[in-house]
Design a protein around this nucleic acid. Structure first.
Lengths: 339, 339
DNA sequence: CTGAAAGCGCTAACAC
DNA sequence: GTGTTAGCGCTTTCAG
């Protein structure tokens, strides 16, 4: 069973290659091809399972119908979920996904952008590390649709979808204050990314207004979780006055809970907790953990819609859309009223 | 800044297209091209950031340097982690990944195989649903390398990497028996897949030998977790004699823990627990949960190595490799000695 | 509706 | 080392 070509099926059916091509591309009507022929061809194609080579088509048309998805790590539950939702919607429109994990590494990301570029992907969905402004701007200048999400780059003028990080952090911190906590820490990954800056700012805002002191720990992300857990333990031990902590990301929260478990700290008696991102672990933790839930479905939907819109728009133009979505504070027992 | 072609850079450098092509493909030595020229070309390519179109190359050579990865769902933490590890190793060898989620749906998977096929992917990594034997066999007959993992299809003769499901389940069940539990349930997703069959068999074996009665719940997977949690709650309520339960998969375990939490059951006093797959939630649950940990890194490594081996082997031949890896029972408090 | 022909960008065989 | 050429499989224009 060797690979069929358009030529083959034209020969088999005793018709012209051109006709087959038109039918394949749904331009039969426009080209005034009889419904009878169309039917015959479609039936035959169905029968022998013919599929035109999308690679040849891609070379000819310049379109690959592939979307490049670049995230920090595809194994991160947040990104994995987004990836899944995007895959679904893209699939319906005939697009496939090539994904890459950037590790939030600037150089790796630059290289990956080139790789996707040489593969002629039609559009990009990027959760960018810092420092790739130039490369992304080149992409845009070359007419490629690009949508950023989770964070954005101020110097890149293109669509993005993010959440209201500053408000969310401020709101959560205020909530802890309202519950009676006064020495509230903020533990997050060190990052110059917009979303982390926003979270930090919101946290500081809330404390400043009430005149309380911030306690911040920025951990370096490492694949070795134990190291991060230890860092958090050290921080908690060094700051015994802390009575609450806000985690800036789900992995930070997860490491934090492990640290607290190892230190045998009780939640919320010894330490109240709120974390960004909702996750099973927060629901199932001994004391269920209050979480700042991102509207994941909505984010994914917005991201892929924006991209598909640009992909459809022949003219490529259109205003830059900056979407900022709201989060939801899912209150659980970990942020109960201070004893 | 428009797209460069080989022709352009040949012209710019006043040399032949052929030479550039050879240099690009590392065949300079073989073609006796002077090191001086090679250097000059490479420098220029570097400078202008030229990248040959991999799509044109693909059309010409029939190789796309893309690997198709099909899993049940890319958002499943097990598969997401595997995907990440595979991506890393594949990347080093110059391969990219296109991924698809099958939802374990036979028809969707058939369609996806065709999609990947028309994209000329060079190799397939598949965690197959049942019923796609014919399609995969056609792939193999067409000379495509295919590696299955997590489960395999008996009627498909190709490499696969799985864990020793039967032994793992039997071992875990025995452990519960040893700890004094007698009425041990098995809760899993209904599935005709080899891995689930193996787990079921191991569970039954252990009980049969000791003469205890099995209690099995097979839940239908639905994206709506609440439904599954409710099913488990009903089962637990209907079987008050149960003193322990083995979960056949991480999602089953996670739903089960939610069900037990809602029923205010104490672990392990009311119900001892062991689950397949290790995960943060098991480590962080109020009573840490004993887990049957799969060697994820090893699985990913084996899978991609097998595929790369076949990709390298011009002849495509070679014996079918069937890799069965061992799991590790990570004992935690949820399976403590029966009170 | 057909048939011929050009061309997407690259590889590789061939003659020089 | 160069220059030419064919061809991968498709789309698309053009003349019939």
């Amino acid at each position: 069973m060797k690979k069929l070509r358009i030529k083959d099926i034209a020969k088999d059916l005793n018709i012209s290659k051109t006709a087959v091509s038109f039918i394949l591309n749904g331009r039969a009507q426009e080209k005034r091809i009889s419904g009878e022929l169309v039917e015959r061809v479609e039936k035959y194609i169905q029968e022998v399972g013919f599929r035109p080579s999308s690679i040849a088509r891609g070379l000819r048309t310049g379109k690959s119908h592939i979307i490049g998805l670049m995230v920090e790590s595809i194994s991160d539950p947040f990104f994995a979920t987004i990836a899944r939702l995007i895959e679904n919607e893209a699939y319906k429109e005939g697009y496939r996904i090539i994904y890459c994990s950037t590790d939030n590494d600037t150089e790796k990301t630059k290289e990956l952008i080139n790789v996707l570029r040489e593969r002629n992907v039609d559009g990009y969905i990027i959760s960018p590390p810092p420092g790739v402004e130039k490369e992304i701007n080149e992409l845009i200048k070359a007419g490629m649709p690009v949508v950023m999400f989770d964070r954005y780059l101020a110097k890149v003028k293109t669509d993005y979808v993010v959440i209201d990080n500053e408000f969310s952090a401020e709101n959560a911190t205020r909530y802890l204050l309202k519950q009676g906590y006064r020495n509230i820490g903020f533990i997050t990954f060190s990052s110059t990314l917009t979303q982390m800056k926003g979270r930090m700012k919101g946290y500081r805002n809330a404390l400043r207004e009430e005149g309380w002191k911030p306690y911040v720990l920025e951990i370096d992300f490492t694949p070795d979780e134990k190291v991060m857990v230890q860092t958090i333990k050290d921080f908690l031990v060094a700051n015994p006055k802390l009575d609450a902590v806000l985690f800036g990301a789900v992995q930070a929260g997860s490491c934090g809970l492990k640290a607290m478990t190892q230190l045998k700290m009780k939640v919320p008696q010894d330490l109240a907790v709120i974390s960004f991102d909702d996750h099973d672990i927060f629901e199932l933790f001994a004391t269920p953990v209050t979480a700042i839930a991102q509207p994941i479905e909505k984010i994914a939907h917005k991201v892929i819609s924006l991209l598909l819109d640009r992909l459809d728009a022949e003219n490529g133009a259109g205003d830059v859309k900056e979407i900022i979505l709201k989060t939801r504070l899912k209150v659980r027992a970990s942020s109960g009223v201070k004893a």
